[in-house]
């Protein structure tokens, strides 16, 4: 297997909780607890979980918007976080992000052209003709016309704004695009268009996606691999087909079983194998079955990710 493009190793992120400034030790919120993930060139890896599970914090750490407390992030084998991290300018060429809320992700006082030209100028693309060329190309590739670039964000619909957000993420031609709930704020019909667009762009430019989502049907549709997070830890990770057809961890099973999916509800299509109690492999047990929220100010109980099938890991502890 090729060396991964992005490699997260034992990532920890802790936030100090308010209060107790002096004297006593400050209590810490453990947002991410020893997360390790590899992202290969051209694949879509999705991190799923519910609010507060640490998936967004992980994405922000990759983008350099949140400093990890511990652990390392490597891009093509070189440090991507910590003291040896590259400058913002170099980082910008490697990874970009598409945000959830299309209404908050564009500066209301800049035209689309300005929003796209500014980063290019910053990265030494100053010739007017090249600027126009690149902006035209990127506008076309997200399904907008170059003329629309002269407009302000409020003149666009939510779906169009999300296209502009994608254009901005692609303008510097990064290798990794972090998708933070890219379609959850959109209507069903618009959602389908954006999902199709993201898949087309991935194929066209060989992009690697790190997608953060709570919507499992979108995740199943788009991902190559899936990592399920529960309170700062990955509880299960593997190829999409293994996670959706053969989920092992009780939390994953519960997550899949609770999706209100019309097909499953009405007995159409295939039943997802998420019913029945979860079975841990012999000699192992589940450290946490995900049925109740653990204390987020404590280190979790010791456990490890065990490979139960090629590429399919489940968090277990020895019993």
């Amino acid at each position: 297997m090729n060396a991964p493009l992005l490699s997260i190793d034992d990532l920890h992120v802790r936030f100090p909780l308010s209060g107790s400034w002096f004297g006593r030790q400050r209590r810490m919120l453990h947002a991410v607890n020893g997360l390790s993930l590899d992202l290969a060139k051209g694949e879509c890896l999705s991190i799923v979980g519910e609010s507060g599970c640490g998936k967004s914090t992980t994405a922000l750490s990759v983008m350099g918007l949140q400093e990890p407390t511990q652990g390392s992030i490597l891009f093509r084998g070189k440090p991507f976080s910590g003291p040896q991290a590259p400058s913002r300018m170099e980082r910008a060429m490697a990874a970009q992000m598409v945000f959830q809320d299309p209404y908050a992700s564009l500066n209301p006082r800049q035209t689309v052209w300005q929003s796209l030209a500014q980063p290019l100028r910053l990265h030494n693309v100053t010739a007017r003709s090249e600027l126009s060329d690149r902006i035209e190309t990127v506008m076309r590739s997200v399904g907008l016309t170059p003329e629309q670039a002269a407009r302000y964000p409020h003149e666009f619909s939510g779906g169009q704004r999300q296209r502009i957000g994608i254009a901005r993420a692609l303008i510097l031609q990064p290798e990794i695009v972090v998708l933070d709930e890219p379609v959850s704020a959109l209507d069903v019909s618009i959602r389908a268009q954006i999902i199709n667009l993201l898949l087309d762009l991935q194929e066209e430019f060989g992009l690697s996606y790190l997608m953060i989502s709570h919507d499992l049907s979108v995740v199943e549709h788009m991902s190559d691999r899936v990592a399920v997070m529960f309170f700062g830890q990955i509880v299960e990770t593997g190829p999409w087909s293994a996670i959706f057809s053969d989920p092992v961890h009780p939390y994953t099973r519960r997550l899949i079983a609770t999706i209100p999916d019309p097909g499953a509800v009405l007995g159409l299509g295939r039943e997802v194998a998420a019913e029945g109690p979860a079975q841990a492999p012999a000699g192992w047990s589940f450290a946490d079955d995900g049925s109740s929220a653990p204390d987020v100010t404590q280190e979790p109980k010791p456990s490890e990710l065990v490979e139960i099938a090629p590429g399919h890991f489940v968090r277990l502890s020895r019993s």
């Binding site: 069903v188 049907s217 999706i259 295939r270």
Partner: peptide
């Protein structure tokens, strides 16, 4: 327009 769970597997 709705991605349906399980349909990719089928």
């Amino acid at each position: 327009a709705l991605p349906k769970l399980g349909s990719r597997g089928l």
